[in-house]
Design a protein around this nucleic acid. Structure first.
Lengths: 213, 213
DNA sequence: TGTACATCAGTGAACGCGCGTTCACTGATGTAC
DNA sequence: TGTACATCAGTGAACGCGCGTTCACTGATGTAC
C-alpha cells in the first residue's frame, strides 16, 4: 500500500488536513495486522504521524473509531454485493453465482473490514447508522432470495427472509472458516469458491430449483 | 457460578493446590466477559487469588494459556458432538438432527470456548495437540457425512469430506451469526435451531435424501 | 518413625513500557466588515 | 484588498494505570535412608 508511506512521510504543516481519513486507514491496517482487539488509539495516531491527543478531535474514543471502520466496511460490502448481484442480470444463476463469489472475495480481500464488521462485537444499540448499513448489505441477499423463491415450485415455497438467512449463513460460514485472507485460514482440498458453489448448488436443488433451467 | 467465589475465598495455604485448573477457569470466565483478546495474564492470576508471577509456573505466557483453553474447548466440543451423534443411532435422521442441535447448543452454552476455538486465531503450526483435538471434533461431522452419503443415490454421490465441510460451514455460520450466547447475537424472526433445521432439510433434499425415508 | 535434603509452587517487590486521557497552548484557516 | 478576530485542528508535556516479566526468596511437599 504505497499511499500509507506517502501519507506519513509527505511534509505537512501544522494541520494534517485529512486526519480523520488517515486514522480510518491506520485503524484498518492495524486491524489487519493484529485483529480488531489488537489496535490502539495511540498507535493509530502514530501511524498517521500525529500526536496521541490529535485523534480526540475526530473520534470520542477507540470504540467510535472502530465503529466507523465497521460502518465503512458495511458500506463497501453492500456496494460490492449490489454490483455483483446487479439485480439478477442477465439471468438469475449467473448473477447468483457472482454474488457468492463477491461475498468470499470481500472477506478475502478485506479481512480487516470483515472482522470489524462481524467479530468486533460492536453494540448495534444506539448506532442506527451502523445498523442501517448492515441492513443495506443484507438487503442485497434478501433481494436475491426473493428472486430465487419466485423460481421455486409455489406449493413448497419457503419465506424469502429465511432463504436469505440461509444464504448468509452458508457464505459467512465458509468465509470465516476457510476464506479469510489472514492466518486463521485452514487448508482445504478445494478452494472456498468451489466449496461454496457446490454447497449452493445442492441447496438450490433442495429448493426445487435447477441450474439447468 | 458458585465455584468461583468459593475457589477464591476459601482459605488455602501457601500452595494453591490446583492453580492450573483455576487459571483455566479464570481465563474462560474472562473470555466470556470480554472476548479472547480482552483477557490478561495478570487478571487471570487475580481471579485465582494468586500473585501475578504465579501463572508462570504453569504456562509460558498468555498465549499458551489461551491455547490450553481452546484445547479443552475442542475436547469438550468433540465429546458433545460424539455423544449427540451416537454413531447414527437409532437411525440417521434422528441422530443427524441431534448433532446439529448439539453444535448450536455448544456455541450458545459455551461462547467463551467457542470463541477461543474459532476466533482467537491461535496458530495451529507447532501445536499438534490442538490440531488433533480439532480434528477429532471434525471427525464426528465427517462420520455423519459418510453415513449421509451412503444414503444418497450412488450416481450423484458427492465426496463425504465435502459434505462434512458443508455441514460445518452451515452450522458455524448460523452459530456465529445468530446462535451465540453473548451480546453479538442478532435478533431473528425464528430460533437458530429452526433456521438450522430448515436449512439442513433443504440441503438433504438437494442431495437426494428424503427425511421421509 | 524420624530426619535431612531436594524439589516444587507461590511470594512480593521491582522494572520498564505503552496506553488512555487531560490540559493549556499555538499555529493555521476562515470570515465579517 | 486588508485587517481583526473567532474558530478550528494539532501540540507536547504530563498523569495515573495496569500489564508483562524478572528476581531472589520462602513455605510446603515429597522422598531416601
Amino acid at each position: 500500500m504505497s499511499w500509507s508511506k506517502d501519507d506519513r512521510e509527505s511534509p505537512r504543516g501544522y494541520h494534517h488536513g485529512n486526519l480523520k481519513e488517515a486514522l480510518l486507514r491506520a485503524a484498518l491496517e492495524l486491524i489487519a495486522q493484529k485483529g480488531p482487539a489488537g489496535f490502539t488509539f495511540a498507535e493509530a495516531a502514530r501511524w498517521a504521524g500525529v500526536s496521541p491527543a490529535a485523534p480526540y478531535r475526530h473520534f470520542r474514543d477507540r470504540d467510535e473509531l472502530l465503529a466507523s471502520v465497521a460502518l465503512r466496511g458495511f458500506n463497501q460490502f453492500a456496494a460490492a454485493l449490489a454490483q455483483a448481484w446487479d439485480d439478477g442480470r442477465p439471468e438469475f444463476f449467473t448473477a447468483f453465482d457472482r454474488l457468492g463469489k463477491a461475498y468470499l472475495e470481500f472477506a478475502r480481500a478485506e479481512p480487516a473490514y470483515y472482522s470489524a464488521m462481524f467479530e468486533a462485537a460492536i453494540p448495534l444499540a444506539g448506532n442506527s447508522e451502523l445498523r442501517e448499513a448492515g441492513d443495506r448489505a443484507f438487503a442485497v441477499l434478501r433481494a436475491a432470495a426473493e428472486k430465487l423463491c419466485a423460481q421455486t415450485p409455489a406449493k413448497a415455497r419457503p419465506p424469502a427472509l429465511m432463504v436469505a438467512l440461509h444464504i448468509w449463513a452458508i457464505s459467512h460460514g465458509i468465509a470465516s472458516l476457510f476464506g479469510r485472507g489472514d492466518a486463521a485460514r485452514r487448508t482445504l482440498p478445494m478452494s472456498p469458491e468451489d466449496l461454496l458453489e457446490a454447497e449452493v448448488l445442492i441447496y438450490l436443488r433442495g429448493l426445487g430449483v435447477s441450474a439447468a433451467t
